[in-house]
Design a protein around this nucleic acid. Structure first.
Lengths: 334, 334
DNA sequence: GACAGATGATATAACGTTATATCACCATTG
DNA sequence: CAATGGTGATATAACGTTATATCATCTGTC
């Protein structure tokens, strides 16, 4: 029971060469049934666990996939992770998650470590303000990379995302159809790529249907902030009767704020969320929202990665998924 | 711009030996300032990134820490992860998260891959029904391991957890002090180690203060289930005027259920949660709960890991943190 | 029975680092 | 001036795999 058993230990125990033991362990080459079982028995007896570092270094292959994400606690992300790992694990890959918390510096460290360790592929929601350098690094090292949600400011990367503009346009149209004219956009803080797209969809409809002047109101992505922002927005623009929100968390906060003001979400003020997080359906009142199935999105992301891995040199693909309007109780006629 | 630059490429560019380049890169050995800058310049020019696999294989060191967890979306866990990585990253470690989703088989695969890749240390919330084999594997490979929250059924592992029995006893006492006698325990499904401890604390107080007969009611750990469970519990035991919950999510669901029945949380029925997740403070009404700072808990966890890493052979330590009763609006006199 | 072609096993050189030992050189000292 | 000791650089052998080439041995065929 001295040091860890290695291939050599197993080979000696089974009375074969290292090369043979190696071939048995990974089911390659031509090996007779007799020696195969001999080696497997020896490996089992010694509790042999192969060293992936040596293997991946020599073979240039690594079935470890990293997923760099920016808010691990977001239930939407959690579902995406489930979808991603279910599909990739079925193919023998392992997915490990790194939370960059939207800090480009932390993200840089993570990606650096990722390259250092010769991982097999990277799934990545690029942080806002990601320096060009990071993209170049990944390209230079030819790391199979699929960006997610946030379309990178660099070309040559596969991408899976949501049709954001289309979705908020649909939400705004829904509210306009109900008779609302003073519709505000609530949530988000900086002009992230995603938010820019969503705001664009909202503004297009506001202009096309000649509704009230667009109002865009910032809010941090937590419930409490959403509540305060809703109250401040209403104070500044009392004519507002509906809000399109940047996300469900803010939307739920907004509903809370509406009740705080003695009004009812879906009556005096209508609210549409985005994401359809689990809480949306059980909130009081249940939230009308733009839904994309995060689990399915995760599976799509995994599928794109598998394609990239099997065809490392093919052209970059971009696939975008439509969101669906889920009608619940927070929207109603004016 | 052919293959990836390696130490040899850098050394040649700088006109020194590989050994010298290696020493410069990791700041070891005796190197003159002149050659140091020469090598660093060459490395920068070539965009050299060291290969950690080779380094860790040779040196036997790896500053990658894995965190195997069971519900990545739980905001409590997310905060723990923040605390853990903040502390460990400051020491040059990298934390990657694997979600086992309480499936011992998936967990086994993750830990297996972890060992294969020779990671530096493991932070681990053992899944329920973790086979003894998994513990033995970790012990045999001498992986620095710290278990978290769930005390393992094996000895020799460092552990960081919460004083569960003490906490639920405090919650129950609080309700009893307010005059409640028929207090139920709501939430959880199987007799997990954590839940067993919490129920024990509840039962002890129920017996010591000769309150009503203890009622334990199962519920899945999602809001909707908590709501339904509360309504079913009340139907079966109409005398119940207070519930101690297994977690905040169930507690929030329970409050929802109470309102559904036309009653008010904190008036007709009191509710105490557990965890103090962000939503607890902003719910209507704000939730009384047993709080442990997950961020601080994460830092504690990281500190124990650092100690273990610096002292691989020391005796196993167990440290448990007390929870604190946070009074909000869901508890009141009978 | 000589030869081709399978079949099964093996020797050996990588993969890219780091640790150890060694070496050349120069300055100091008695 | 020989002996000592410090400084800066290097050669070399690991670390544990896998890929390639090679080598016996056996089977069947003419």
């Amino acid at each position: 029971m001295a040091g860890k058993p290695k291939l050599e230990t197993v080979a000696r125990e089974a009375g074969v060469s290292i090369a043979t033991a190696s071939q048995v362990m990974r089911g390659a080459g031509r090996i007779s049934d007799k020696t195969r079982t001999k080696v497997l028995k020896a490996a089992q007896k010694l509790h042999y666990v192969p060293d992936n570092r040596a293997a991946s270094m020599r073979s240039g292959q690594n079935r470890e996939i990293g997923f760099v994400i920016n808010k691990i606690s977001n239930p939407f992300n959690a579902e995406v992770i489930s979808g991603v790992s279910d599909l990739l694990e079925a193919d023998g890959y392992l997915v490990s998650v790194l939370d960059a918390r939207d800090d480009p510096e932390r993200q840089g460290r993570h990606i650096d470590a990722f390259i250092r360790n010769g991982r097999g592929g990277l799934l990545w929601v690029p942080a806002e303000q990601t320096p060009q350098k990071t993209f170049e690094l990944l390209a230079a090292h030819r790391i199979p990379t699929v960006t997610f949600l946030r379309r990178p400011q660099a070309s040559g990367f596969d991408h899976v995302g949501i049709r954001n503009a289309e979705a908020t346009a649909q939400a705004t149209n829904h509210l306009a159809d109900l008779g609302h004219r003073h519709i505000a956009y609530l949530g988000g803080e900086e002009l992230t790529a995603v938010r820019r797209e969503r705001i664009a969809g909202y503004q297009t409809v506001m202009a096309e249907r000649t509704l009230g002047t667009p109002v865009i109101w910032d809010s941090n992505d937590i419930k409490l902030a959403g509540m305060q922002a809703m109250m401040a927005l209403r104070a500044a623009h009392p004519e507002t009767t509906a809000v399109v929100c940047n996300g469900d968390i803010v939307a739920l906060g907004a509903c809370h704020g509406i009740r705080r003001m003695g009004l009812q979400p879906g009556k005096e003020i209508s609210v549409v969320g985005f994401d359809d997080i689990p809480d949306a359906a059980v909130a009081t009142p249940p939230l009308t929202t733009m839904a994309v199935s995060p689990y399915q999105l995760g599976r799509r992301l995994a599928r794109v990665m598998l394609e990239r891995l099997s065809e490392p040199t093919g052209p970059a693909s971009v696939s975008e998924v439509s969101a669906e309007l889920v009608l619940r109780a927070t929207t109603g006629p004016i």
